[in-house]
Write a protein that binds this DNA or RNA. Structure first.
Lengths: 205, 205, 205, 205
DNA sequence: GTATAAACGAGACGGTACGTCAGGTCTTTCT
DNA sequence: AGAAAGACCTGACGTACCGTCTCGTTTATAC
């Protein structure tokens, strides 16, 4: 059951061929694609293993053999689809770097991937495993880059040495996810700008 | 179906008595209590209407007659239990007012009500009605008071006249909900303090 | 509960007026009419008290106050509608008397009342009370007349003195009901004729 | 849905093995046995699919997968239990052949199988499919043998050449079913004898 | 007249069973 | 030996009626 955090089914390179019929890669992809489509169409709660199997044209058993629960399937499907994305580019100014990246994040969150992320975070409130999977397999990776960019700003002397990094990251990204999840107001690029301009003055030396 | 935003079963004051046997208030309370207990014990996903009915000692029909889905039951249960709570008191300093209120909010979110709020927001990603119910019946009310306090600070000359109120509220509360929902770090009173001290310097004249 | 064999709700003549609002005759009729219509439309099994109440425009309680179960309602409804019907007329010949009456019976059984009788007998296999009601309140009455006609034939010297009356009545009517209920062949006037001509030769002196 | 007239679940001989887990024969038998027991204990009306499933130790779905309604289950249960039964033996005299067979039929109808037959015919008044199933899967088979025996009597010169076969069969069996269903008098062997002696005089040359 | 008494409609109540759906497991044949 | 199919038991779903029970409202007789 603890294998749920890894691509447990991928036919890794250099894998020694085990006896028996090898697992079908077409099948694997079909399942992930079906899962992704369905989670967008009906949401995580209404998503069923049977539905995924039916759309993927495979048996339920084939899914259960590879993933322990539907959360893992969805998480794998999400990662397989959204892996290549929003990263930082150095403009020379840390504030400007964040402004650009936050605008990119807003763009993603306001689109279809945003709905999936919201679905996954929402499902994570009900299914602890999904929450854990989201944190470690998606959130943590993004956070590393943001932290590095912030730390770079500190070491370059742009930002105060006593900057509470985790707090600042929360102050920047928290409001975005807040609007994504509560939907009390829209997510716009100018909202990203305003946020950066609210938080950074207190950080810059 | 559009009645889900109101206490649809309560025998409101001054209500002209409709024909037929009136709905039982004991029953109403028993259901909400049972729902609240169960959602804490087993979580929203494992919560069943049958389970609520069994614990409340009433028939399933009685629940279905009053609420369209389990999300609404939980929402009503939550409101009935957590209504009288976190409010502002004027200490003379707007920053101090917010520091105290955010600490109170953290206390609530870190406790059992926090789990239910997270559950409701999570469920709101799948069930639009629940999301809407959360926004209008809970979130909006809290927001009004916060906005007034902030505006008071502006009119008292403590805060800049060009303060973007909605943005500031998001910057203060967003990070709290971010941690509540993503759970990448704990919610502590000192986090509330740090947040206030990060955001306010840029606002004060 | 044992009152189900009598018209328990009719405002009988000479009834001493009890205090309180008297039972409504319109209501009574509306219920019986609704029951009759519904039993023809959907059958006895799918018939519901709620359905009758809804169509009759009265409350369920009003029905339960008067009849102990749906079988009684249907039986009353049937009797109220089909009371005036098939009787014997003396032609001088007993065989002819029966031929005419059996033709009349076939006519009734082949029409809508036949469907209701079939429904009632069918329901009687599942609901003993309905069966008992059918026997005593309908069947027995018809039987008396047939028996008298047969006995008249005996005393007039047309039929053998050792005629087994009950057997002959069964031999005459049994096949009609057999076809009514099993439906393996149609009920036609000529079938009645043939039946009479099969049974009577052995009876006549 | 048109499969209800056949043993739709039986693993027929010579059936090419389809993929997937085959239907369990133990399960099949357990359901039919449970259905038969229950219909005798509580009657058809109080019979529930849930009750059958509980006693058979299987899930409701397993029953619904094989039969469309409880009538079909009972019909199959009845056929499986009463298949090997009442048949004719040639004594040399057609009248005697029928006397013996009618006595056997009376014996069956007066016992537990009789209650089930009555239940099935009764149910057939409400559910056309059940009526059709009864006619084709039970009644028709019995009728063939009776017709052959009657025709044998004709060709042997015992009975008149112009005998109306269908009418005679109705005259012999109709009264039995009449008493079975209306229950106005008991079914006894001597009743069978008397019936034969009433009908045959008119047939014999 | 004004109690008092009962029937009325409406509809909520605790239940039972419905027929469906999906869960996760299993058993079988096919590749 | 894995894939695909499909049957298995389980358990919850949301619905329909059951028969009972309040309600507030008539509509009678009795005081």
């Amino acid at each position: 059951m603890k294998r749920s955090l890894q691509h447990n089914a991928a036919v890794s390179v250099g894998e020694k061929p085990r006896p028996g019929r090898p697992r079908s890669a077409e099948c694997h992809d079909a399942i992930l694609t079906a899962a992704l489509e369905l989670v967008e169409e009906v949401g995580f709660a209404a998503l069923t293993i049977e539905g995924i199997a039916a759309r993927a044209g495979c048996g339920k058993t084939t899914i259960y053999r590879r993933w322990p629960n539907k959360a893992s399937v969805v998480m794998d499907a999400f990662l397989a689809s959204t892996a290549p994305e929003i990263s930082f580019r150095d403009t020379g100014s840390t504030r400007e770097n964040f402004r650009r990246q936050l605008r990119a994040v807003v763009k993603v969150l306001a689109g279809p991937p945003g709905r999936i992320i919201a679905t996954v975070i929402g499902g994570g409130q009900l299914d602890p495993e999904l929450g854990e999977a989201y944190r470690t397999r998606w959130q943590a990776g993004r956070r590393v880059e943001s932290r590095q960019t912030l730390q770079q700003g500190i070491s370059r002397g742009e930002l105060r040495k006593d900057t509470n990094v985790d707090l600042v990251l929360d102050a920047l990204y928290g409001p975005l996810y807040y609007r994504l999840l509560v939907k009390h107001a829209p997510l716009t690029p100018s909202y990203a700008d305003a946020l950066v301009d609210l938080v950074f003055p207190g950080l810059e030396v």
